[in-house]
């Protein structure tokens, strides 16, 4: 469903992503791990068409993000880091805008918005303006925007960052609930999340993939059998350890 081919990104002399390749199939939840600054967000931004790649490409449902960006974007639901949304809009107006841009009209539009509101459990705040929401609700509103068009590919950049344990649990349940019919990428640096929701995980460091496997396979790389130790072993620079 999603194929990333040797994706690269340079910012001037800095190599943020240095040739990343992987595939995600339907029914998979891929955990995208790495320390801060490893290139997770940059990679996701290239897949979602926000940043043009310096090299390589990504295929989303067969659409090349460089040649057919609009078609590729249609197949993606994206929850950017920190859940950006228009603060002055009400939740309902924001979702209606997202639905309109996704090409829905009339009764179809209303139905889409209502079902997204229901799935993300944000009924009680539908008329509130987004600027007044708590972080958890804000996250769910942007999440609702991402799943509104029932995209085959769902990409989430640190969806549980800054949420309290209950909210984290809710988000994870929502991800699990959709796992079967979608290809999902979740970036995180919270390792418990991998055990909780992911069927496979990739660890990147300095813009390169250093590990790719199921949580069990990754754990077996360390004698202690703990993901934390594998993560430290693979991503820590020698001078830091």
């Amino acid at each position: 469903m999603l194929e990333v081919r040797n994706l690269q990104k340079h910012f001037g002399a800095i190599r943020a992503v240095a040739g990343v390749s992987f595939r995600v199939a339907q029914g998979e939840v891929l955990g995208f791990l790495g320390p801060n600054g490893a290139g997770k967000t940059t990679t996701m931004r290239m897949i979602t068409g926000f940043l043009p790649p310096s090299g390589g490409t990504a295929l989303v449902c067969g659409h090349d993000v460089r040649e057919a960006p609009v078609e590729a974007k249609r197949c993606i639901g994206y929850l950017p880091e920190n859940a950006p949304a228009y603060d002055s809009m009400t939740v309902l107006n924001f979702l209606r805008f997202a639905a309109e841009i996704r090409g829905f009209r009339g009764a179809d539009l209303v139905g889409r918005v209502e079902s997204a509101i229901e799935k993300c459990r944000i009924e009680e705040i539908r008329h509130q303006s987004i600027g007044t929401l708590s972080k958890g609700y804000r996250q769910r509103v942007v999440f609702a925007q991402a799943i509104l068009h029932d995209p085959p590919v769902l990409i989430m950049d640190e969806p549980t960052d800054g949420l309290d344990p209950n909210q984290k649990h809710t988000v994870r349940e929502m991800i699990k609930g959709m796992a079967a019919e979608k290809a999902i990428i979740v970036s995180t640096h919270i390792l418990e999340e991998v055990d909780a929701v992911c069927s496979r995980a990739i660890i990147i460091r300095h813009g390169q993939i250093v590990a790719n496997g199921t949580p069990q396979e990754l754990k077996s790389q360390s004698r202690t059998g703990r993901l934390d130790d594998v993560f430290r072993k693979l991503t820590l620079d020698k001078e830091d350890s």
């Binding site: 068409g49 926000f50 974007k73 950006p84």
Partner: peptide, 11 residues
């Protein structure tokens, strides 16, 4: 506000 990322990743 970062909403440009949202806007430009829509189709």
């Amino acid at each position: 506000a970062g909403t440009i990322e949202l806007l430009l990743t829509m189709p």
